[in-house]
Amino acid sequence: MLNQFFQDPIQLATAQAAVAIALALGMMFIAAWAGIHLEKEILIALLRGLVQVVAVGAVLLFIFQGPELLGFVILAGMMALAAKTAEKRAEGLPDAFRVALFGIALGGGSVILLMTWAGVIDPKLTSLIPIGSMIIANSMNAASLALDRFQGEIRSHVGHIETALALGADPKTAVQPYARAAVRASLIPRIDSLRTLGIVWIPGVMTGMLLAGNQPVHAALYQFVIMAMILAVSGLASLISALLMAGAIFTPAEQLKINIRV
């Protein structure tokens, strides 16, 4: 209906946004009528989301006209931000920023470079940036999950770790079972989402490609490529993070830095 009134794509999109906002506001009023008062939160969230995403669009508009090298600079910046975010999740672990940065940069970076070289990712900025950022975001999630779980495992097994040390084990051996559990835990959600791909959900990339008029089998295959890439990058990022953290939690004299008594 809207496209009968608006020919200019930007005008059309703006009108569509207005309809979507109206829909959300409608939900808000119904919720309020049911005694669930989230007006403030919803209004702020709508406003923030709108401003942020339009700002990103505007920035991308500008970036897409720049040189390709700019894409790599931007992805590097995203990696640093991602590492900062993962560090927060690993609060209480030493050296978490460095560890997460290595995990994300080595894991995410190698996958981005390899896939660009292989031609799976188009080196054009219009695909490098969105797919690259998706890879980085998934590296970040995997590294965060792994570090968070690793920390929990360490804290609940301090006695076992120190017993192993007291028996003359090297630190890596003493924490190995917990590092493994952490990496495993960080990969399970990725494996699950790959397993249920298409059955439980039709994910974003495929949806987008279908909306853009791509042939469904083509869209499906590319979605699979993305998911497999995400699985690979998640594994790399969490493995690297857990491995580095397994070193970082010990002093040079091979003592556990996390000092809690059992």
Binding site: G159, A166, G168, E254
Partner: peptide, 30 residues
């Protein structure tokens, strides 16, 4: 070296903190 020191100076703690597995696995560990 810490590992050598800990081999020569053994420690028994209040709780056994046995590693998962068999009794023999634990005895073999050191």
């Amino acid at each position: 070296p810490p590992r050598e020191l800990r081999r020569r100076v053994g420690m028994i703690m209040q709780t056994a903190h046995l590693f998962p597995g068999s009794v023999a696995d634990n005895v073999r560990f050191g």
